Computed example of a mutant assay.
Amino acid sequence: MSERAKYIFVVTLSCFTLISCKKEVIKSVPATDSTSIRMDALKVDSAVINPTDTLSSLVDKSVIGSNILTKSSITPRLKTLLGSDYDQMVKYWNTETPFIKEGDILHASGCKQHDCNTYSYDLYIDIKNNKINVYKFSKSKLTVFTEDNFRIVLKDSLLKYLSTKKINANIPKEK
């Protein structure tokens, strides 16, 4: 094949390539107002509009499997709530219980694999009030992280579970 034939072949191929790439033309821009744009943004994260929508679906699911700690709308809130303890919680959330729901409260717990007595966490989410509490058990010490200073009131089996966990972790009774 001569140089001229190669040149014509390349030019022809390039033209076909350019012609086949169709440029999309926007015929009209939908008329919206700032309210509808805001609502569309909120629909993506229904936990913002109505926490009950997405949070109630977590029942019987694992924290790790649902990516609540690392890739959810709650993740930034957990980072803010826990501060420097957030990375440790993610690191040591190995052995876990699935989410349970009692009333308007979701609960799950996780701990360091093979060492639950040293590092253990309980995550409580109040669906009605859209607040989070994290209880950190570390070396016989309990630290409670409350979002907006809102302490979730635990009742029935959740309260009993927490009391048993405090006894097992050698946490002194509150007066």
Rank of each mutant, 00 (worst) to 15 (best):
K27D: 11
K27T: 05
K27S: 06
S28C: 00
S28F: 10
V29G: 03
V29L: 13
P30Y: 04
A31R: 11
A31Q: 13
A31M: 10
T32M: 12
T32R: 13
T32Y: 15
D33L: 00
D33N: 15
D33G: 15
S34L: 09
S34C: 01
S34F: 13
S34E: 14
S34M: 09
T35H: 10
T35Q: 13
T35P: 00
T35S: 11
T35M: 08
S36A: 08
S36K: 09
R38T: 07
R38L: 10
R38D: 07
M39L: 14
D40Y: 08
D40E: 12
D40I: 00
D40N: 09
D40S: 04
D40V: 00
A41C: 07
A41W: 06
L42R: 13
L42V: 04
L42Q: 12
K43E: 15
K43D: 14
V44C: 01
V44W: 05
V44K: 13
D45S: 10
D45W: 10
S46N: 08
A47F: 10
V48L: 15
I49E: 14
I49D: 11
I49G: 00
I49Q: 14
N50D: 15
N50G: 05
P51S: 12
P51I: 01
P51K: 01
T52Y: 04
D53N: 09
D53A: 01
T54P: 00
T54C: 07
T54N: 15
L55S: 05
L55E: 04
S56P: 02
S56I: 03
S57M: 11
S57E: 14
S57D: 08
S57N: 11
L58N: 02
V59S: 08
V59D: 06
V59W: 11
D60Q: 09
D60W: 05
K61L: 11
S62F: 07
V63Y: 06
V63R: 05
V63D: 03
I64R: 14
I64S: 15
I64W: 02
G65A: 14
S66K: 03
S66H: 02
I68E: 00
I68H: 05
I68R: 04
L69M: 08
T70L: 02
T70G: 01
K71R: 11
K71S: 14
S72C: 02
S72N: 05
S73I: 04
I74P: 01
I74C: 01
T75R: 03
T75K: 07
T75N: 05
T75H: 07
T75C: 08
T75Q: 03
T75E: 06
